[in-house]
Nucleic acid binder design. Sequence first.
DNA 1: ATGCCGAAGTTACTTCGA
Length: 259
Amino acid sequence: MRVATWNINSLKARLDRLLAWLESASPDVVCLQELKCATADVPVEAIADAGYETAAWGTGRWNGVAILSRVGISDVRTGLADQPDFADATEPRAITATCGPVRVQSLYLPNGRDVADPHFPYKLAFLKALAADAAADARGETPFAAVGDYNICPTDDDLWDAAAWTGTTHVTPQERAALDAVKAAGLADVFPRALKYEWPFTYWDYRNLDFPKNRGLRIDLALANPAFAAAVTDAYVDRNERKGKGASDHAPLVIDLDL
DNA sequence: ATGCCGAAGTTACTTCGA
């Protein structure tokens, strides 16, 4: 089976591209982030016409996560156990479901904005909650993966210019330590192939010709438990989906499994 | 060729993203 994760940067603005990509890539399960629409506004009929059931959680202008599946979807859970709030709101940044033989969690981690901003400790608190939340599924025998936009470059190789990013969010030791704690719960980074160039970046800023110049980040990750990781036969970043008019600023991460 | 930011709420400008 094929599982993918994609920060789509608006489900409504990207719907035509999503439907075309479902047709061409033919994934069985797709985890989406940054829906930027409320749950009630998710175009479930158009997605159903493409052959996928939808579980989604969104509140409007920002954030929002979903799981699409053509192999069934059950045991849906929104949010994390003990998920921290921001500005007195529980933001739609996590949804978990069982789809056929796998259990997947679609995650959109807080950006952090700046190390001095309240959003930064919120990001660290979210990661701490994630580590605790994922522990049971990580230890389980069901193939499980916590996938999505982690908004962290795991190493200095995972961004185009580490020197230029010193002291900014996404690369700090605190964020990397918090990510390591998530992995320590029993999850391993499924490292993808790049379809071009040396490194599998998943995000390129819209500005400054960053995509043509390959000034990217690897921030979309799939953290898998041993049962999931053992079934992986291939993984790649579909950078072709980043091309052209109306692309998201993130490319899908695609994982093939012998399941 | 992959090409100089884009989405959404509100309605001319603002906030957010990484």
